[in-house]
Nucleic acid binder design. Sequence first.
DNA 1: CTCTTGAAGGTTTTT
DNA 2: CCTTCAAGAG
Length: 742
Amino acid sequence: MNQTETGLNPMQMEAVEHTEGPLLILAGAGSGKTRVLTHRIASLIRDKGVNPWNIMAITFTNKAAGEMRERVDKIVGYGSERIWVSTFHSSCVRILRRHAERLGYANNFAIYDTDDQKSLIKDIMKRLQMDPKLYRDRAIMAAISSAKDEMIEPDQYRIDAGIDWKLQKYAAVYAEYQAELKKNNAMDFDDLLVQTVKLFQQFPEVLDYYQEQFRYIMVDEYQDTNTVQFRFVSLLAAKYRNLCVVGDDDQSIYKFRGANIENILSFEHVFPDAKVIKLEQNYRSTQNILNAANEVIANNQGRKAKRLWTENPEGDLIDLRQFQSGFEEAEYVAGEITRGVRTEGKKYRDYAILYRTNAQSRLFEEKLLLANVPYKIVGGVNFYARREIKDLLAYLRVIENPEDDLAVLRIINVPRRGIGAATINKVQDWEAEQGIRFYDALLEAEYVPGLMRSLNKIKSFTSFLQVLRAKADYLSVKELLNEIIEETGYVADLQAEGTEEAAARIENIDELISKIADYEESAEQPSLGGFLQEVALVSDIDSVDEESDYVLLMTLHSAKGLEFPNVFLAGMEDGIFPSYMTITGDDPSELEEERRLCYVGITRAMQHLTLTCARQRMIRGEVQYNKMSRFVKEIPRELISLERERGEIEDRKPKMDIPTRGSVYAAMKQAFREKPQQAKTFSAQKATKLDYEIGDTVRHIKFGVGIVTDIVDGGRDYEVTVNFDQAGTKKMFASFAKLKKL
DNA sequence: CTCTTGAAGGTTTTT
DNA sequence: CCTTCAAGAG
């Protein structure tokens, strides 16, 4: 490969060609590191004759993994499916599925999410008779998680706790928690890493097998690896030492999750023979944006010296707008997007709105809805964490892994079977006495004293599960779920409820069904276990689809690794960003982490960056007055445009900042709500036929009743003009407006 | 045992 | 604001 053929600059070339031995690539934002990684993999296969299956690449999201595989495929044309490209968690699961029994787990172990962890911790706290006022479950979960990140086992934790009675108590919960997980044949997220490393440490032959397999290892976003992940990688790479890590210390933003910035800062100490390559040319952003980012991050101490530069034009100034309230802020953003799309030929997907906390998405959602702008919110409540989804998944989990007592407990009385807390307590007491598993106790419920009428209910529950389990042998996952829905009457109950909320839940269930269908179509060997695993490890960002035309809303954390032509950084206020916690806390390194987050945010923008803030804002039902973020003040004045309004702005009536009434807003959201799958509808298929035409009277969920005055076939979608009785004339896309003919 | 109601308490960021 | 938890009636 030569430079002209690949379009790589000399530094990038060097990174691609340096394949033997440890390599640290310090890749600034937008410096083309993904290109380097893909070309490096391609070059290994094509030019150096390395077998695809001898390569492992760790990416930050499943989506990034898929894209990398695709790009390699384009360059090389074969073998990409044999490369291990995946996240840390997925790689570990894949390894553990084959060897978990060596660690005392069955290979079909369940994966517990944060919710599951929490219920388990609560259970244990109750059992240990701990006062929930004195001990916070969140704190305990965090403590256990960080212990695992550092590979500290319960015994060690207890020793380290010394005479601190509180930590001693934590240690007790930790030990019990770990025992319980094992008993349930389950692992939490952290365990996936920890157990894999344990596997490698305890079984040298297993380690050796994988060392032989993964002769070339690459890790993306290395600045955000934690200690276990570092151990995992270094163990695997210990034999052939072909370890290439790519990262940017300025973009380390996951300290709260155990990310250890030392991993990147001291890579050269751990691997003294490491080659270090810096990629400092930015191909993404304009001069002005890059300068702003450079100035902000320069305020941090203890970073590797570097300065990004670009050959890109200077570009627009950075817009800074301060508003009276969060409502006005959101309105402005929605308006700017509408304007850009209407007058500048921009696409909705050219825009992203980034904020510090998920809670900030609300206002934007509301205003975008009003402005008829298609959007998608990334993050927030995970789809698979919704109650109805977790309930149904719990059935599937119990079928797959009979030892998952936590899942059994979740569904034993869902839907209502008349098996209440009193009954469950009796069974649990007896179970503890006998030293058996909860589910096994249910099977032998006739021996449990004092059950009375509940006994029959338990019997019918367990026999229902047994039947399902038998059917699992020949039914597909989809059929199985239908069976569950049918037999439990889960959807029927919701239908009977007849509320908005119930309807939304049913919609979610429908979506779950189609997700299963998708899975069964696309997976090589679809199985119940495979589906549950996939579900446990997806993140919301994985479902973002570049083809679809919508504005993306997400936290700064979720935006890592992405880029957009136009970025709004919202809520630039002290107390929001940087967050209240870091300002009041006394750890200056936390402020630096926030600053890195700001750096990440700024560098997402390719052409245009807008910073917004509000003088006053409703937080938790209270009005807060915030100063403009200190980060904004770190940007040189000459890079900023304060121009109040641009172009003519229609004379606005004085705004009443009254939030849309909850019910109306909820209803609109409902009508509009964006399911990942519906997302495709926007771009791929317009409504094939409209059930109304010019002259018809229609109803819009927000604007009320009106008459259709025009319908234009815009190719992708119909653009409908409606003259509303109340709201005046509006143009809107048919697939969004959800107009109902009257 | 279930459902309703009211009060209290709590918020970064996520695989 | 929104979720979670406890208490009390049916």
